[in-house]
Structures are given as structure tokens and as C-alpha cells.
Design a binder for these strands. Sequence first.
DNA 1: CGAGTGCTTGAGGGAAGTCAAGATTGGTGG
DNA 2: CCACCAATCTTGACTTCCCTCAAGCACTCG
Lengths: 225, 225
Amino acid sequence: VRDISICSVLPRTQRASVAKNSHTQHLAKGAVIATEGQPLGQIASVVEGVVKLTKSTRDGRQQIVGLAFAADLIGRPFANISKYRIEAATDVSMCSFPRQRFEQLLSEHGKAEEFLLKAKLDEVDAARDWMLLLGRKSAEERVATFILMLAEREVNSIRHGAGRPNAVTIELPLTRAEIGDYLGLTLETVSRQFSRLREMGVLNLDDHRRVHVPDVARLTGLVGD
Amino acid sequence: VRDISICSVLPRTQRASVAKNSHTQHLAKGAVIATEGQPLGQIASVVEGVVKLTKSTRDGRQQIVGLAFAADLIGRPFANISKYRIEAATDVSMCSFPRQRFEQLLSEHGKAEEFLLKAKLDEVDAARDWMLLLGRKSAEERVATFILMLAEREVNSIRHGAGRPNAVTIELPLTRAEIGDYLGLTLETVSRQFSRLREMGVLNLDDHRRVHVPDVARLTGLVGD
DNA sequence: CGAGTGCTTGAGGGAAGTCAAGATTGGTGG
DNA sequence: CCACCAATCTTGACTTCCCTCAAGCACTCG
């Protein structure tokens, strides 16, 4: 049990105050630490063993979006709900403590760092959502997810007082080739999927760059997760 | 130009000190802000437009690993070298300032936050490396990358005084099915690739869980990036 | 108006997925 | 200690989804 692995998030001087609230846990292989969409009130540092973080689609396709080895942290400051299922891949020992105590400690310090940290935490989550897409989704689901992402961004920026609008028009910021690079597809496959979604009535293409989504809920049903 | 988008990393009270060193840039579509593996001394906040972050393999396969929209940050505190190519996907305006000034400001505050922040920055980088794998690599490259990751972890933990050992034995922490879930493959494909790598002499399988890599350099040549 | 760039569509092929037996292995209890 | 059982892994045969290659169309811009 080396120095780096024992709740090493905190510098020496502050460690004691967290250590008081921390305790070491031993988990058998297969033990579930958190499930996708459920609260997780702990932050933990892996001392020994391997922990896997997974996301999955409704129909059971699974993607491991991260592995935590010794000295890696698991848990998510500033968010109550876990976006992944967290499970011991091997027998694991880890050192865990309450999330709120940890957040409080962070907040006592600079706001700038906290802001940046939150941004990066969101980026990690977003990158892992994309890993599920790249690892497990079909071409149709990938394109639908991409359009939906832009549609939701558009809807949020409009900020309608009264609920979400059900139809949106979006401007694609990328070429077909770039969309392919983002989705792990070729530009031809992207183009074919746009055509299919148009034939299905999910999209209207005003021109190659402007996409009208008449029913966002319909699109949501195609993203596959 | 809304409040949230103007160098909004910093809380109101501290913003001024960075704003002094910041300046607004306008970039045409296609402008390159950083290339993979080259230094990037700036942090910037996107004000308008879309910026894409890409990684690519030596043979030209490309993967967009992130998009930055208005109010998103680009650049990497605490690392001099950019791990991605950063390019304007549309015409872009952004507000940028020197990375070192920014880091200095962060360091004046809590060490705990800095530690956690660095960990998360590394996680983002790791997730994006994996996105390249999931989006663009062949089954053989994926399995080779996974084994190499474990091999390097093992080599680093051994900490040989005299250089890297060229042969390693590693213990797989995951089943074939789990490796498949990590690599975006089926368990059958993973198994077939293990067999192929064994036939090629890149691996020896002591049992299903213990893998001996006689020549790590050889394996490195198969990861495809 | 022609060239360039980006997009669509088609035909054919190939890498990985699916389905289906078996072979190993490791754990458990007789 | 060994035999059995369940879980895990390997291998084969076949299928499928997406990629590759190719041709033609639609804008934009000099």
C-alpha cells in the first residue's frame, strides 16, 4: 500500500481531514459500486485491483468506457447521479469517503479551478458517451445521435419559456467527411444514412447544410440508448 | 457576445487579471490552432463558431475526438504538447490568453483541486485516445493496443533502473467478453485475434489469463498509430 | 462557364458479427 | 483427491453491415 494510492487526491497537509472520514473497503470481483443512472455518494481511490466503468444501450449492448487501476479515482464530484455502471473487474480494495465532504474541501479553494474542473468532468462524461457510440452503435444510430446532439444544443440556446419545441432547424457545422470522422464512419455511409432518415421522414434537408427535424421525439427514439 | 462566452473560466473577481493578457482572435474555417504533438501555449474560450479536435493514425485514418462550441475551452493546462490537432471547423472567434498565466492563477489556489483537475485532464486524453481506437482501428490493432497498454503499465510499475525490459508477462484483469466490451468487438473476435497474435509469435498464452510478450517493440508496431 | 469541392448513389467485397459446436479451466463438493 | 459442473474460451461456417471503388450531380467561385 504505497503512498500514491492512499486517498492521494489530497496534499499531505489536508489529507488528515479527509482520512478521518475515509475507510478501506474490500470488494469481491463482480461487486457493483454504482449503476447507470443511480446516485453515488462516494469518491474512492483504488488501492488494489481493477474497476470497470460501463455504459449500455437498452437492448443490452455494452461498452466499457474506462478502467480504474491502483491510484485511480472513481466517483464523480459535483454530480449526484452516476453516468456509468461501476463494477469490480477483479477483487478490489479501495479507500472511499463521502462525496460531499470532498466537494466542500474543493469549494473552500479557488473558484476558477472549480469551474475548469467541472468543465473537464463534463468533457470526460461526453467523451465516454461517444465511446458507447463508437464502440456499439449502428450507422443509423450514430447519425441520429449526432443530429440529436445538435438539435438539443439548438433547443437549449433558444431557451423557450414554455417547454421544448418539438421541431428544430439546425445548421451542420461539419462536412459529410468530417461527420464521418466524428462518428467513425465513411462519408458515403453518412450520406446514405442522411438519405434514409429523410426517406423515413425524420429529417428534411433544406440544403446539404440545413437540416430540419420535424419531430425531435421521433429522433430521440433512434439514438439507441 | 454573451457573458458566459467571454473567458468565462474565471469568476467575476478574478476575470480582470486574465483579461488583461487576453485578446480576441478571428480565425477562418480551416485555420489550424495546434497540431498533434506540437506545443500549444494558449488556452482559449470559443466565442462563436465550432472548433474540432482530431487524432489520426500514421496512415491517415482520422478521428474527431471532440468539438468545441461557444463557451467551451480549448487548450490543455499543465501540458506543453497538444495531444490533438485543433482546427477551426467553421469561421471562429475566440478569446485566448497565455497558458502559463492561467496555470499560475490555478496554482495559487488549492492543491487538492489541482491534483484532481490534472487527473481529469489525463482522463479526457485517455478517453480520446480510446475514441481513435473505437472509431478507426482494426480488430488486430485494438487487441494489440489493449495488450500494450497493460504491458506498459506493468513495465512502469516494475521501474527497472536500467531502461525498459523488452519482454513482459501480464495478467489480464478482464475476460474475453469484457475485453470485447472495452474494444468495441465481440468476444469471438477478441479470441481470434489473440490466436492470430500467438501464431505470429507476438504473444505466448501461458493460460487464458497470463500473457507473455517476448518483444514489446514488436507489439508497439501493431497498434496502428 | 469551367474547375473545384462537396454530396449522392450504385455495385461489389471484406472485416467483423452471429450462430453453433466443442475444448479448457477452475471451483466445489463428494 | 478427484470428478463433475459451470463458466470461459476457441474454432468453424455463414451472414451482414459497412467500406471501397466508381460514376455522376449540385453548388460556389474565380
